[in-house]
C-alpha cells in the first residue's frame, strides 16, 4: 500500500454533525443514539458487520433515509423534511453506491453532465467540459461516448465517482464502493479514492477495505447493532482495539 495520506482535517470547521440520531424500520431499531462529528477535510472509514447500520447511517446524511430522532447538521444546515433544504444539501454531498447506479440510458458523458446542467443550470458545453475533466481524472476519457453497460465494473464505479465530483461537492459519501467489484478491479477504484483523499475532500466511506482505511482514514469507526462501538485513528484502531467486539471483527476480517 502507498504511504499514509497526510492529514488534511481542519479542526474547527465541522462539516457533518450527528447528535443523538435514532432510526427505526417499523419496530427494528437500526440506529441507536449516534453521535459523530466530521471536520472539514477529515476522512472517516466506517466498518462493521452487515446489518450494523453503517450504510443506513451514511444514507441519512443526504436524506436517502429519514431519521426519526436527533439532529443531523450538514455544512451548517440541519436536515428536516423541508424539500428545498434537502436538495440544497444534496448538491453539496456526493454519493457513490455499491452498485454504481449509473443511468443506463445515457452515455458516460451524459451521465456526468446531467446534474451540472439540470441542478446547477450550467450550459451543456461547460457541463461536458467539466465532465471530460473529471473523466480524465479517473483516467477513462476514452470511454466518454460509451454506455455504462459497455464498461467494466471498475470503470463504471470510476464514472460514478466522477459523476459525483462534477457537482463539485464539499463532502463525498461512499457506500461500500468496492463490494460489488471483481478483485482485480478494486485497486483502480481505490486509487481514485486515495487521490481524492489527497486533494483534501471530506470523505465518509463504508468499506471493508482495511488497507484503504490504514492508508487514508483519519478515523476508523466500528459499528455494531446500530451503535458506534469504537472510533479511533487507524493505528490505534488496528493495533490496539479497545472493544471485544472490534477485536473479534478485526480477527475475522484480517485473519484470511
Amino acid at each position: 500500500m502507498t504511504a499514509a495520506v497526510p492529514n488534511t482535517a481542519v479542526e474547527n470547521e465541522v462539516m457533518i454533525e450527528l447528535r443523538g440520531v435514532n432510526k427505526w424500520y417499523d419496530k427494528f431499531h437500526v440506529l441507536k443514539d449516534i453521535n459523530l462529528q466530521v471536520a472539514k477535510g477529515e476522512r472517516i472509514v466506517v466498518c462493521g458487520p452487515s446489518g450494523s447500520g453503517k450504510s443506513t447511517m451514511i444514507r441519512c446524511i443526504n436524506r436517502l433515509e429519514e431519521h426519526q430522532k436527533g439532529q443531523i447538521i450538514v455544512d451548517g444546515t440541519e436536515l428536516t423534511s423541508d424539500l428545498r433544504q434537502i436538495e440544497q444539501i444534496r448538491k453539496e454531498v456526493g454519493m457513490v453506491f455499491q452498485h454504481f447506479n449509473l443511468f443506463p440510458h445515457l452515455t458516460v458523458l451524459e451521465n456526468l453532465a446531467l446534474a451540472p446542467m439540470w441542478v446547477r443550470k450550467m450550459p451543456r458545453k461547460e457541463a461536458e467540459a467539466i465532465g471530460m475533466q473529471y473523466l480524465e481524472r479517473v483516467k477513462i476519457p476514452d470511454q466518454a461516448k460509451k454506455y455504462p453497460g459497455q464498461l467494466s465494473g471498475g470503470q463504471q464505479q470510476r464514472v460514478a465517482i466522477a459523476r459525483s465530483l462534477c457537482m463539485n461537492p464539499r463532502i463525498m459519501l461512499f457506500d461500500e464502493p468496492t463490494s460489488a467489484l471483481d478483485p482485480e478491479m478494486i485497486k483502480e477504484v481505490l486509487d481514485v479514492m486515495i487521490e481524492l483523499a489527497e486533494s483534501g475532500m471530506t470523505m465518509m466511506c463504508v468499506t471493508h477495505e482495511m488497507g484503504f482505511a490504514k492508508t487514508v482514514a483519519d478515523k476508523v469507526i466500528f459499528m455494531d447493532r446500530g451503535q458506534i462501538v469504537e472510533s479511533n485513528p487507524p493505528e490505534e484502531f488496528f493495533n490496539n482495539p479497545q472493544n471485544e467486539r472490534t477485536q473479534l471483527f478485526l480477527s475475522q476480517i484480517i485473519g484470511h
Partner: peptide
Amino acid sequence: GQYEAADALGLSYWK
C-alpha cells in the same frame, strides 16, 4: 438505485 442516484445528485422530483 436509479431513484437514489438521481436524489443524491440533487435532482428535483420532476427532473
